[in-house]
Design a protein around this nucleic acid. Structure first.
Length: 439
RNA sequence: GCCCAGGUAGUAUAGUUCGGCCUAGUAUAUGCGGCUGUCGCCCGCAGGACCCGGGUCCAAAUCCCGGCCUGGGCGCCA
């Protein structure tokens, strides 16, 4: 098929901007054919663009013969441009339709699409991800990512307002930041290097100069996780603040979450409606549970965990039923947290690390960091890590490391909470997991 | 890494219990035809599938073995 050139046409409106008071006006629209209903003498197309849909109506005997000929070729997902007249009508849900006067075909599509784009026969996640570029055109998916976009925008503007600087630290690193073996190796000009699993060490080093920093970016974990809340590549929203402790950054965090929920609730009403999801903006302050309290609460559900042990998923699920919203867990056993988390001065077996939970999902983890070099070296050794491989990080502690604290939000997990999606891959454009490397 | 479940047209499913009535049903999608107000349009027609390999049996989508692939749970974590 010969495709048309876009020529000097410019879009005058998105579909969502067409209202009944534009009756009689000529508009230029760009978009895709989402659905076709041909009744014989009259033919309807649903035109979709980023912002929504609108009906194109072709009364076959009363439309330009050229338009009729052109629309004979149209199939689902063809991208088109059209000029047409806005017509007020009582016969469409939105009270308007477009009578095209000129149509250009800009892109074609296969006859048999790999997914049903009208939503009559929903596909499984696997089929959806295999055809992800098409899947993302579905209104529900557009809505989910619009919510993610809005959430991130809210977080950024809030942090800017609090004086944080946005930074960019390396993704290619020489040694582990968290310990353990869950790193992807890369060949760096013959040297062994790794993909960063977090910006942890760099953001701490930046508190020496910029004091309050944040970073949004992808990080990599080579864990063979097989769950609906893990990715091999995920997006982290990290902050680190000088002259602050866990209490300070927890207060900041709950404000960030509150502000984000409020913004999404207020500005994404259309998207939430499309998703059929309602969520309550959480009340401040969030509940703060200590690790010890959590163990007590779990006993009432019949789960007994010896002090010092990690809390298994099954227990978190029970806890989520007890606290079906956001809550902090504080005062974790020191050995259960990363080496850079500061032990409490009055009670060193417990640390100043915290998690922000949403039901059973660990959404954020953070804490006061160790700012004394000797203590950090000691903790590295306790964790079985070699201080020599952290040499370049440890030098920062010779240059006046301030007391500091920070946290990291899992952006996709936050999006799950804001959209009601149960599988993290649904809220990741092109998810990477244990088995998926394409598309 | 460990443990479960499962692979049937483009998509989603029925059928597998207890092998035969499966020449594999249904919905939707696709193609063709019809229809002037549809909006999950409607009506008719058509084409389209049992993951791969081996085994048992008169007979395998169905049972057995091996493989491949996928989903989910655990651990770990954001």
């Amino acid at each position: 098929m010969n495709l048309d050139s876009i020529g000097d046409w410019n879009r005058t409106h998105y579909t969502s901007q067409i209202t009944p008071d534009l009756d009689g006006q000529e508009v230029t629209l760009f978009g895709w054919i989402q659905d076709i209903r041909d009744l014989g003498g009259i033919r309807f197309f649903i035109l979709q663009d980023r912002e929504g849909t609108i009906q194109l109506t072709i009364p076959k005997k009363r439309v330009h013969p050229e338009v009729l000929t052109k629309t004979n070729f149209l199939q689902k997902r063809f991208s088109i441009a059209l000029k047409g007249m806005v017509k007020k009508t009582s016969m469409t849900p939105r009270g308007i339709e477009i009578i095209p006067s000129d149509v250009k075909i800009l892109g074609t599509a296969t006859e048999q699409l790999p997914l049903d784009i009208t939503g009559k026969t929903p596909a499984n996640i696997e089929a959806r991800l295999d055809a992800r570029p098409l899947d993302l055109t579905l209104e529900k998916n557009l809505a989910a990512f619009r919510i993610q976009h809005t959430a991130l925008q809210a977080i950024r503007s809030f942090l800017f307002g609090k004086g944080f600087l946005e930074t960019h630290t390396p993704r290619i690193i020489a040694s582990a930041t968290e310990g353990g073996a869950q790193l992807f190796c890369v060949d760096y000009f013959g040297q062994k290097a790794y993909l960063a699993q977090s910006p942890q060490l760099y953001k701490e080093e930046l508190t020496l100069s910029f004091e309050k920093v944040f970073e949004v970016g992808p990080f990599f974990r080579a864990e063979e996780s097989h769950t609906r809340r893990h990715l091999s590549e995920f997006t982290s929203v990290d902050i680190e603040q000088a002259f602050a402790d866990a209490k300070d950054v927890m207060a900041l965090l709950e404000q960030v979450i509150y502000h984000t929920c409020l913004t999404v609730k207020e500005t994404c009403t259309k998207e939430l409606k499309v998703l059929g999801y309602k969520f309550e903006v959480p009340q401040l302050p969030f509940k703060r549970l200590t690790y010890d309290q959590v163990l007590e609460d779990l006993k009432t559900t019949g789960i007994t965990i010896p002090w010092g042990e990690d809390i298994p998923t099954e227990a978190f699920r029970e806890l989520g039923k007890l606290y079906p919203f956001f809550y902090f867990i504080t005062d974790w056993p020191t050995h259960a947290k990363a080496f850079y988390i500061k032990p409490r001065e009055d009670k060193p077996e417990v640390c100043e690390g915290f998690d922000l939970m949403w039901r059973y999902i660990e959404l954020v983890s953070g804490g006061t960091r160790i700012s004394q070099k000797e203590q950090l070296i000691e903790r590295l050794k306790e964790k079985g890590l070699n201080p020599d491989s952290f040499k370049s990080h440890l030098q920062a502690f010779d240059f006046g490391m301030p007391p500091h604290a920070g946290w990291a939000i899992g952006l996709e997990r936050l999006t799950m909470i804001l959209t009601g999606k149960k599988n993290i891959r649904e809220v990741t454009l092109f998810p990477r997991d244990r088995v998926r490397l394409t598309p």
